[in-house]
């Protein structure tokens, strides 16, 4: 899952970037409003975390422009503005959620998880992939036959992306976008390595494997 965080505080960007990446998201971090709008326009994100008071362009203008150009990306406003009018204005302009600074990192993750699930119309955070494999998108835990499977953030992000798009073939490029930020130079072979590791950890091979390869197209979870 890929996030864009537009926030002018460098210190907050550092903390959020590290925390969200550790949680399993691919995160793009931008400190300027105008740059943030460009990132949002030319990339596909699952959720955009948007501050309101930004240099270059304020958050509400970014929001208005994105909605005007038809971008349906879920947007969570993260602002120090705590007045009800500010919240109402943000939500009326098309934001999907509003959080006031200071905030709990856990709560931010929970809200982001909700917006991601809403993106894929999956209300139940627990997804049963068959063969005894279950993915919980709220707790970011994977179980196989009742036992926890220890996945790296990148492996989990890959599995979650496939699980939320169950039945759809996802290309290597799309998977790469979901697990790495836009400035990453990683190539498609990284996806192959991660899929290989994932199959080893959640088990199954050949016809019994949860993650199947559609040769020439990508990967799919049936």
């Amino acid at each position: 899952m890929k996030l864009l965080v537009i926030e002018d505080s460098q210190r907050l960007l550092r903390s959020l970037g590290r925390g969200l990446k550790k949680t399993g998201y691919a995160v793009d971090l931008v400190a300027d409003g105008a740059d943030g709008l460009d990132y949002a326009r030319f990339n596909d994100y699952d959720v955009i975390v948007l501050d309101l008071m930004l240099p270059g362009m304020d958050g509400l203008t970014i929001l208005r422009k994105l909605r005007a150009m038809g971008k349906q990306t879920h947007i969570l406003i993260l602002s120090a503005k705590d007045q009800v009018e500010d919240r109402i204005r943000g939500l009326q302009l098309g934001a999907d959620d509003y959080m006031i600074k200071p905030f709990s990192f856990e709560e931010l993750c929970a809200r982001l998880g909700t917006l991601v699930r809403r993106q894929y119309k999956a209300k139940n955070p627990e997804i049963n992939l068959g063969a005894g494999v279950r993915v919980n998108t709220a707790t970011k835990l994977v179980e196989r036959n009742g036992s926890a499977v220890n996945l790296t953030p990148a492996e989990y992000a890959l599995l979650e992306c496939l699980a939320l798009n169950r039945g759809k073939v996802i290309s290597k490029e799309k998977l790469l976008q979901a697990i790495h930020d836009s400035d990453s130079y990683a190539g498609p072979n990284v996806v192959e390595v991660l899929i290989c590791n994932l199959r080893k950890k959640i088990g199954g091979a050949g016809e019994d494997c949860v993650v199947r390869t559609r040769r020439g197209y990508g990967y799919v979870v049936d």
Binding site: S9, L12, S15, G19, A80, K101, P102, F103, F105
Partner: peptide, 15 residues
């Protein structure tokens, strides 16, 4: 004070 407190809290929680 909200922004520095938010920075402080995020750094502590993530760390």
């Amino acid at each position: 004070l909200r922004t520095p407190v938010a920075e402080l809290r995020a750094a502590c929680e993530v760390g």
